[in-house]
């Protein structure tokens, strides 16, 4: 029996609901030795900025209980190099991809979106919520007026699927999500990392040694936060929600579907299990075949109804 895993919600069109999250999957070819990238619902590229960014200088990552903290600082090759060197590989590999965009000003986001439009890129995800850069990003995702202005200006120049990635580091994620919808976003993805800090203290030879990493928390530890956010915003939005946060198993995927997500992104789990994304596609397909679900919508309906 052929099962239909596709997601078809307005401009959000995916062959299956399993995507990989920005910053955890590079530009696709890095993972090609572990998974058939073309078999995934899609990949979200590492964030692209107008100019190349060197990223942060200090210790960038550390493991925490149930997760990790990163402070990469959006290191990336810049949009020019992305278009010249990375894009051809994505197209050639028949990969469904979403380009994650990070600007330092509204103007930069608009320029990036224009470049994507000119290069016939089908989908972009606006990173308005990176906690690790001093100027920009997070502030766009924490003020609904600024966000609305940003999204509507990007909307004016980009005709493809426009996704806004939301930060949980706000008082009311509902207000931000509604602002994105009103400004013309086709979908929202949630959540980006949770602001946090790790400090390891050791007492050696009469001295305290401290190792601090301040940045975004991800991994299993953030799943309840992500589920909470997805649950709250999917209830009030008409546009689809893509769930992100600590997904390591098919049960996790179902949990996000149950609270209203139409698709999911796998992030930190890629680091631990580089083949997990394709495995989840296969497990989902297997589950549907075994249990007689013909379409993903049918599965979601049953999951949400019971």
């Amino acid at each position: 029996m052929a099962v239909d895993l596709s997601v078809n919600k307005g401009k959000l069109k995916l062959k299956n609901p399993i995507l990989t999250a920005s910053g955890t999957f590079g530009y696709n070819f890095e993972y090609a030795r572990f998974v058939d990238v073309a078999s995934l619902g899609g990949i979200v590229t590492k964030a692209i900025s107008l100019e190349p960014r060197p990223g942060n200088d200090w210790q960038r990552i550390c493991e925490t209980y149930g997760g990790m903290i990163n402070s990469i600082g959006l290191e990336n090759v810049g949009v020019k190099k992305f278009i010249e060197e990375k894009l051809p590989f994505l197209i050639k590999g028949n990969v469904n991809f979403i380009v994650n965009l990070a600007g330092a000003s509204i103007d930069e986001y608009v320029k990036l979106a224009q470049i994507c439009e000119e290069n016939k890129i089908n989908a972009v995800e606006l990173n308005v919520s990176c906690p690790n850069v001093k100027s920009g990003c997070l502030e766009f995702g924490t003020d609904e007026k600024v966000l609305k202005s940003l999204v509507s200006q990007v909307r004016a120049v980009f005709s493809g699927c426009l996704i806004v990635k939301l930060t949980p580091n706000v008082t009311s994620v509902e207000k931000i999500a509604l602002a994105a919808q009103e400004a013309g976003a086709d979908a929202v993805s949630a959540i980006n990392t949770v602001k946090g800090l790790s400090i390891k203290v050791r007492y050696i030879n009469g001295k305290f040694q401290k190792e601090t990493v301040q940045g975004g928390l991800s991994g299993k530890a953030v799943k309840p936060i992500a589920l909470g956010v997805v649950n709250r915003i999917s209830k009030i939005l008409d546009i689809p929600v893509i769930g992100i946060g600590g997904i390591y198993s098919l049960e996790d995927v179902f949990e996000f579907f149950a609270v209203g997500a139409e698709a999911v992104q796998i992030g930190t789990a890629n680091f631990t299990h580089p083949d997990i994304s394709e495995r989840l596609v296969n497990e989902l397909k297997g589950f549907m075949e075994t249990n007689g679900f013909q379409s993903l919508d049918e599965l979601k309906e049953k999951l949400r109804g019971e």
Binding site: G23, T24, F25, G26, E30, Y31, K46, G55, R60, I61, M68, N70, I72, E75, T268, N270, F271, P274
Partner: peptide, 9 residues
Amino acid sequence: ACSIGVCRG
């Protein structure tokens, strides 16, 4: 983190 050049950690 990733050990394959992706995460820039």
